[in-house]
């Protein structure tokens, strides 16, 4: 069974149609990259998958582990193993990063009928995860994202991801605006979590990330749909030619999606 199966997905925000028939299938253990110009609907797709109520799904379906994903509350999706790394992580002053994560992890474990972790167990567990993203201890004790730099916020998302141990992780432009060192840390974090069961959907505007996270499948999204699908060489082609040739093809109705 595919881990994620999206069929003909349409979604809108307020009166504007943004997703216009997305089809996407992700198998266990795969890394998919979704690229595309600004405004093509990449981030909308990520947020619809995580359950952001800003968006209304008007048609199509998304099956996750064979279940209707769109029918689940956002927290249920998370407890079922879906993780979204936010493009713009939210600052939560007054709520400590580490205690918040403990509460989140225990909510997930409870849902999976696993015993909750006590403070000692959790601290030992989380120290291992911190190494993955070279997190400083001080960021653990501070309020969630409060006063973090842009790079620290992105690293913190990867740290949350590592801690919550998802089955499907969606990264929404986690690479944007990162210097090369931070980018490598993010990529190393993802790569170290790759295994034959865990899948990733990596949304990016820039091909650069894919030098460090090598995808199995690359999609290009244009105007609310997947306009092109290929292997990792597609990303290189995009790097050279830009997106405009694809946008033109979509406009003339000539771009037929190619199966990977």
């Amino acid at each position: 069974m595919s881990l994620l199966e999206i069929k003909n997905l349409y979604a809108r925000a307020e009166e504007q149609e943004i997703l216009k028939g997305v089809d996407l299938t992700v198998e266990p253990g795969q890394v998919h990259a979704i690229m595309g110009p600004n405004g093509s609907g990449k981030s909308t797709l990520a947020r619809v998958l995580a359950g952001d109520a800003v968006y209304e799904v008007t048609d199509g379906q998304a099956l996750y582990k064979g279940q209707d994903l769109l029918d689940m509350d956002p927290e249920v999706r998370a407890r079922e193993g879906l993780f979204l790394a936010f493009q713009y992580p939210v600052e939560i002053p007054g709520v400590s990063n580490v205690y918040f994560l403990k509460a989140a992890l225990n909510a997930i474990r409870k849902h999976r009928e696993e015993p909750e972790m006590d403070a000692m167990e959790f601290l030992a567990y989380v120290r291992e995860k911190m190494k993955l993203v070279k997190m400083e201890e001080s960021l653990l004790q501070r309020p969630v994202n409060d006063g973090f730099s842009g790079g620290e916020k992105k690293r913190n998302e990867i740290f949350h991801m590592a801690t919550l141990d998802p089955v499907l992780a969606v990264l929404d432009e986690t690479d944007s605006g990162l210097d090369i060192d931070a980018l490598k840390i993010v990529a190393d974090g993802v790569n170290s979590l790759r295994d034959d069961k865990r899948s990733f959907v990596v949304i990016t505007h820039y091909q650069r990330l894919l030098n460090f996270i090598v995808p199995d499948v690359v999609h290009v999204m244009v105007d609310g749909r997947i306009a092109r699908t290929g292997g990792k060489e597609l990303a290189l082609e995009l790097e050279e030619r830009g997106y405009s040739w694809l946008e033109q093809k979509v406009a003339t109705g000539a771009a037929a999606p190619v199966e990977a």
């Binding site: 359950g51 800003v54 956002p74 927290e75 998370a78 939210v90 939560i92 918040f100 849902h111 919550l164």
Partner: peptide, 13 residues
């Protein structure tokens, strides 16, 4: 709302 969604996306009800 965005902050609520952020917390829910981590598994918090």
């Amino acid at each position: 709302d965005t902050a609520i969604f952020y917390l829910r996306s981590r598994g918090i009800g």
